[in-house]
Amino acid sequence: MLDPAGAVFWPAASMLIFADLHLEKAAAAARRGRLLPPYDSRTTLDRMALLLRHYRPTRVVALGDSFHDEEGALSLQPADRQRLALMADGAAFTWVLGNHDPALPESLPGHVVPDWAEGPLVFRHEARAGVPPEGELCGHHHPKASVPVRGLVVTRPCFVTDGHRRLMLPAFGAYTGGLDVSDAAIASLFPRGPRIFLLGRERLYHFQLARGARAA
């Protein structure tokens, strides 16, 4: 099930899946001299907690880039660390590694893997080129799409899928921007034209994209 908040819940396995949390992105920016509001981790963790309370999963999978950089997992504020620990009490956390966080400290609750398979599905950070032999859930690209409506253009993060083999999740982190689905990096993964599901306040909006075309 795709949740309009930008996560996936798999009832059969009682599994909740997030992509690209980019925790501590503000702290990473601060190290480079941009003092962004340091409340991003808190915001992301609160949004995760809300979904955990709703679905009560036994397992949580984060599809990589969970921390914006390697220092991130260590720089969490004590209060945020507490938030994470509370969630990990009720569900087993699996951290898939991403390009931003190629390694994660052992102090993190749950276990850390390069990728993860369960049943017919494989969970990895970045999609593998070509048609996956099994069902693949991935993140990495932060997909977003623009839909022209009445002379305006609405741009939102979105899920992207070919309908049966591959599902790309939008980034869940508070400060994560996006890459348009028409960009070759995403479009080449969906050669037959992707279906997209734009995130809405209470529901998703579905559009079928033509091969290599822009939204709607």
Partner: peptide
Amino acid sequence: AENVLARSPRFDLRFT
């Protein structure tokens, strides 16, 4: 079917 499903609050994606 997918469109109808998409308009329900949550969309069930089946992998085949």
